[in-house]
Design a protein around this nucleic acid. Structure first.
Lengths: 201, 201
DNA sequence: GGGCCTTTATGATTGGAGTCATAAATGGGG
DNA sequence: CCCCATTTATGACTCCAATCATAAAGGCCC
């Protein structure tokens, strides 16, 4: 889901550059903007008291983020951090809402986006609640392959570190490494040169 | 979130009675209807291979459920089961979508509903990923108290069995019982006559 | 009140992910 | 090509929730 950049600009949107690991907004913060990634990527994380991150969503080029509070006047549900040097475009809340009112099709597209993300949440919760580390990892990687996120379509390499996988499955790095080794031994996963791995089938 | 019943009826909605534990629709099933609870309550669950349920959402009188596939042409993300003898009202998908197009305010209300539920999902995932049984239970009960669901406003009793709490936190009954006893011992919870319990503050 | 089913309670044991420590491999930059 | 930060790898040990078994308490209908 993305809104045409030219359309956003006519509504007064502005570009912003953020560097690697820079925080775009904090969980609980007051929401004033609609955000969209122009280039680069953003991770949307919940952080607990000990500083551990759970990656709720990876937002890539052309995708929107931080929309929740725009609809219900609440605050940001998680913290947005640039995964790399990234360019974002942002639009003031009031303008965004008016834009949606003027363009019902865009509003419907947003509803669809929320719906898709909700499905992913259902899946994630199911995995966290009842499945083993191996199962969680397999499900996550399959999902990423399907949605062509962080994956190279030619070599099937999935560009996620073990730490990132851990932060998306609620596991520890060591557990992810061990579980992936085991999946590799069972032939369900291909790991080459340590860091490079691709999912079978 | 609920749509006015008279309005639904003018669009051709029909009532349906379902008995306790009757399945309304299955996860993965093809979606044809918008649903709303008229009286009673419905649990919306993910079921794994061993038959264990995770309660994704408790849907009470006046609330809608099963809307996800209406927006993205997918299938039901979970299974809906009547928690008690329940009356539901349902409207064909095509009529529902036209109703939304004709009433932008209702569409906005739905977006807000999705937003609220998404926030709850963020919270749930965070708890499942990183917190202890006691913390999960406390957070869940606090949430239920706030949203006046399954709670008696006079006596502060929360009408959930230990099994239901277990099915909403990904724990086993025994663990829930032990953790709640411990919370009671620490004074964070009041348990009377075994089954009756209320949350402090 | 007695019978019966559901829910709550508690103890003993086990398995598996977390934790900590340490080392090896990888890759980018000068 | 070598250096150094990051990422991956592996072993030993701990701890806590799941599991299994069994019992007690509540609620409800006849």
């Amino acid at each position: 889901m993305m809104i045409d950049i030219d359309l956003l600009l006519t509504w007064g949107a502005t570009y912003k550059k953020v560097q690697h690991d820079e925080i775009i907004f904090h969980e609980g913060g007051c929401a004033n903007f609609y955000y969209q990634v122009v280039s680069g990527s953003v991770r949307w994380v919940s952080i607990n008291e000990e500083g551990r991150e759970f990656i709720q969503l990876m937002v890539e080029k052309g995708e929107s983020f931080g929309e929740l509070p725009l609809f219900d006047d609440g605050c940001y549900a998680a913290t947005a951090i640039a995964e790399e040097d990234t360019v974002i475009i942002r639009l003031h809340k009031s303008n965004f809402l008016q834009l949606l009112k003027d363009n019902p099709d865009i509003h419907f597209a947003f509803t669809r986006l929320l719906t898709e993300r909700m499905r992913f949440k259902f899946l994630t919760i199911r995995e966290l609640a009842y499945y083993s580390p191996e199962h969680r990892i397999r499900t996550l990687l399959t999902y990423f392959r399907k949605h062509h996120k962080h994956t190279c379509p030619v070599c099937h390499q999935i560009k996620l570190t073990r730490q990132q996988i851990a932060d998306m499955t609620g596991l520890r790095v060591e557990t992810v490494i061990r579980a992936m080794r085991h999946l590799h031994d069972k032939g369900e996963l291909v790991i080459e040169k340590g860091k490079v791995y691709s999912l079978e089938k």
